[in-house]
């Protein structure tokens, strides 16, 4: 958890060191300002997570008579179940979806931030607006588009191509719908980091004889990396626990780690097992992020 540090220290070395008194006061202000979000999360996030941890080892149980300390659920989950395999399947799906979404969103963010000029905020709203329509209804609509008797297949039949069954109730559908859900959200952090880019930098680069592509690769892309990384995190982490989309459009192969957690809590009414799975997911993401943070040095992209 401590490895995860998305921030960039922008205080410059050459500045005179503030006096001790001033530093102390700044510290107090920092603590004061941070206390809002931090204490909010301690109460409404950390406490629930600790409770889940208690459930996973039987410190808390559904029924008082079951009250005992036990690592049974952890043991069963880690060594005697299919869920580890499912976990890696979810990781692969998350990676695929996050990369796809970022690739789709980057050009749009680029266009809006650097090319679109004054219309950019309106266009941004145009992208986000569909998302006020309920997710579930949009999935229903995708079925109308991609389903067996859907728009796409009807068109294919019209031009003499056999209907394509892989369009819906398939892995393809899961990727498509998830990318569809995430692209607008992913575009936003990339947009805001590109938007702060100083165009004169690009001009300078061009003046120095660099091609546009080189400029993009050497200047624009590195400078927008914080946004890209934020966007990636945006998609990657929540998608690991995703279960609704695979359930609705994945067909027989739509079982993911998130479904396992959901079923353990609801269908199996086995909170201990479900809690162990949840704590594993939380821990695994922390580790993944730490590893990820190692490989991508945030500092290297700062000025």
């Amino acid at each position: 958890m401590t490895e995860l540090d998305l921030s960039i220290e922008t205080e410059r070395r050459g500045r005179p060191v503030p006096s001790r008194r001033r530093r102390g006061r700044r510290g107090a202000v920092t603590a004061g300002l941070l206390s809002g979000p931090v204490s909010y999360l301690l109460v409404f996030f950390v406490v629930p997570v600790v409770m889940v941890a208690c459930y996973s080892v039987g410190l808390l149980t559904l029924l008082p008579q079951d009250h005992y300390l036990s690592l049974r659920a952890w043991h069963d989950f880690l060594f005697g179940s299919i869920y580890m395999g499912v976990f890696w399947k979810s990781v692969r799906m998350s990676l695929g979806v996050s990369i796809t979404s970022v690739l789709l969103a980057y050009p749009v963010a680029y266009l809006l931030a650097l090319v679109a000029g004054r219309r950019k905020y309106t266009l941004l709203l145009v992208i986000v607006a569909p998302f006020l329509t309920s997710y579930l209804l949009r999935v229903l609509a995708w079925r109308v588009i991609l389903g067996e008797q859907g728009v796409v297949n009807s068109f294919l039949k019209l031009v003499g191509i056999a209907p394509q069954g892989w369009l819906f109730y398939s892995q393809f559908a899961v990727y498509l719908v998830l990318a569809y859900v995430w692209v607008p959200f992913v575009a936003l952090p990339i947009f805001v980091s590109l938007e702060a880019l100083d165009l004169s930098l690009l001009e300078a680069s061009n003046d120095l004889g660099a091609s546009r592509w080189t400029t993009f690769r050497r200047v624009t892309l590195p400078l927008s990396m914080p946004g890209v990384i934020a966007a990636f995190v945006f998609v990657f982490i929540p998608t690991l626990g995703e279960y609704v989309t695979p359930l609705l459009v994945g067909g027989p192969k739509g079982f993911m780690f998130g479904n396992g957690i959901q079923n353990a809590f609801l269908q199996g009414f086995d909170w201990q097992f479900g809690s162990a799975m949840s704590m594993f997911l939380i821990g695994a993401v922390m580790v993944l992020m730490a590893v990820f943070g190692r490989f991508v040095s945030f500092r290297s992209v700062s000025e």
């Binding site: 958890m1 401590t2 490895e3 995860l4 540090d5 998305l6 921030s7 510290g27 920092t30 603590a31 941070l34 979000p37 931090v38 999360l41 301690l42 996030f45 950390v46 629930p48 997570v49 889940v52 995190v233 945006f234 982490i237 929540p238 690991l240 626990g241 998130g258 957690i261 959901q262 809590f265 609801l266 479900g274 809690s275 949840s278 997911l281 939380i282 993401v285 922390m286 992020m289």
Partner: peptide, 21 residues
């Protein structure tokens, strides 16, 4: 500031938790 890594971790951690749980 003190424990900055921990604080930034905490602020992003809610992304992780399965919503049912």
């Amino acid at each position: 500031f003190f424990a900055k890594g921990a604080v930034s971790g905490l602020l992003l951690a809610p992304l992780v938790i399965p919503l049912v749980v």
